[in-house]
Simulated assay, not measured.
Amino acid sequence: MPSHEEEDKPCRACTDFKTWAKQQKPKKITISPPNEPSLQKRKDCPLDKNELGRSTWGFLHSMASYYPEKPTTSQSQDMAKFFNIFAQFYPCEPCALDFQEDIKKHPPKTKSREELAKWLCERHNTVNVKLGKPVFDCSKVHERWLDGWSDGSCD
C-alpha cells in the first residue's frame, strides 16, 4: 500500500506538465556557459496528461477506423470488453473514472466500423466539451483517421 506521501504525489499522467513542474520541489539551477545549450524538456520524458490524452485518442480513433466493417460476434464482444478494461486501467485516474461513468451511460457500440467510430467520436466530443475544446464533426472520422483529408493534404 502506498504511503501517505506517495498518495499525495501528483501523477504526471494526471497533471499537465506546467502544473506538475510547479508542484515539484525547487532544484538547484545551474547557468550554462554561453557555448553550452540550456536545459530544455527532454523528448523522452513520461507523457503528461495532455500528451497521454492526444496519443490515446489517436490510437483509439485509428483502432475504430480499422475495425472490421462487419465484425464477427466474437470481435464485437471483444471490442466492447476492450473499452471496459481500458477504462479500468487508464493511467490518469480522474480521466479513467470519468470515462467509466460515460460508458456506463453509453455502452460501446461494436456491431460495425461505422457504429464504433461514431460512438467513439461522441465519447471524445463529450470530453472535449468538458475541457472547453471544440467538438469534432463525427462525419469526418474516417477522413481524419483512415483515408486522409479529401483535399489530398495527407498524400
Rank of each mutant, 00 (worst) to 15 (best):
M1V: 12
M1K: 13
M1G: 13
P2W: 12
P2V: 12
H4V: 11
E5D: 15
E6V: 09
E7S: 09
R12D: 02
R12Y: 07
A13H: 11
D16V: 09
D16H: 11
W20S: 03
A21I: 07
Q23I: 07
Q24L: 13
K25R: 11
P26I: 08
K28N: 10
T30F: 14
I31S: 05
S32G: 10
P33W: 05
E36H: 05
L39R: 08
L39Y: 08
Q40A: 14
Q40V: 13
Q40M: 08
K41I: 11
K41E: 14
R42V: 00
K43S: 13
D44Q: 07
C45Q: 13
L47D: 15
D48L: 04
D48V: 00
N50T: 08
L52F: 03
L52W: 01
L52E: 02
G53I: 02
R54Y: 02
R54W: 03
S55E: 09
F59V: 12
H61M: 12
A64C: 06
A64F: 04
A64Y: 04
P68D: 01
P68L: 00
E69N: 08
E69M: 05
T73G: 05
Q75H: 02
Q77F: 00
D78P: 00
D78L: 12
M79N: 01
M79D: 04
A80M: 01
A80H: 01
K81V: 02
K81T: 08
F82M: 00
F83E: 05
F83D: 02
N84K: 10
Q88V: 01
Y90I: 01
Y90D: 02
C92E: 01
C92H: 01
P94T: 02
L97E: 14
L97G: 12
D98R: 05
Q100G: 07
I103N: 05
I103Q: 05
K104T: 02
H106S: 13
H106V: 09
P107C: 06
P108N: 06
K109A: 11
T110F: 03
E114F: 06
E115Q: 09
E115C: 00
A117M: 05
A117W: 01
K118W: 09
L120N: 02
E122D: 14
R123E: 15
R123L: 15
N125L: 01
T126Y: 03
T126M: 06
V129A: 09
K130A: 09
K130D: 05
L131H: 08
L131W: 04
L131M: 11
G132W: 08
G132T: 09
P134I: 08
P134M: 07
P134A: 11
V135S: 15
C138M: 03
S139A: 15
K140T: 14
H142E: 14
E143C: 10
D147A: 14
G148L: 13
S150F: 13
G152N: 07
S153P: 06
S153T: 13
